[in-house]
């Protein structure tokens, strides 16, 4: 029998906190990249803006509409990548995908993801992995041009 507490792994306190109080949500007036990612199956949306200067993500905004997982993941992403180089952001993006595929990651990669690792609990709910990756897909859209 599944209990409500089984969901605590997916809806960690940090996740709910980021969902209710999203970080870096304010739209940027000064940015170099902008993309909108949406999940056609559920309609969830993430708008990602980046200011990239000298190969470094010097400012970020994540706005969107959707479930606790997609939106908190976006907020967490913004904290993870802010101030990182393009190359490191690319590595983080790959690490995130490995994490959700349950592949082994060393401490260096995990540390770089910081609180974004908290989303890992969705692994038990495979249909929600797409939600967790929505903002990371938006990031890929941008980074693929670099």
């Amino acid at each position: 029998m599944r209990e409500l507490s089984d969901f605590d792994e997916m809806y960690q306190e940090v996740i709910i906190d980021h969902y209710k109080n999203p970080r870096n949500k304010a739209k940027l007036t000064n940015f170099t990249e902008e993309t909108l990612s949406h999940n056609p199956f559920c309609g969830d949306e993430i708008e990602l803006q980046l200011l990239i200067e000298d190969g470094v993500i010097s400012n970020v905004s994540v706005d969107g509409r959707g479930c606790a997982i997609s939106q908190s993941s976006g907020s967490l992403l913004s904290e993870t990548i802010l101030g990182k180089t393009i190359d490191q952001a690319k590595i983080d993006n790959n690490s995130m995908r490995s994490l959700l595929k349950d592949e082994d990651l060393d401490d260096k990669h995990l540390d770089s993801l910081a609180d974004s690792t908290m989303i890992e609990g969705v692994k038990k709910f495979p249909v929600r992995i797409k939600c967790a990756l929505l903002s990371w897909s938006a990031l890929s859209d941008i980074l693929n041009n670099y």
Binding site: D6, F7, D44, C67, I69, S70, Q71
Partner: peptide
């Protein structure tokens, strides 16, 4: 959000 409602109800 509906997804969060749906996931919990599924439980």
């Amino acid at each position: 959000h509906p997804h969060d409602i749906g996931s919990l109800l599924d439980g």
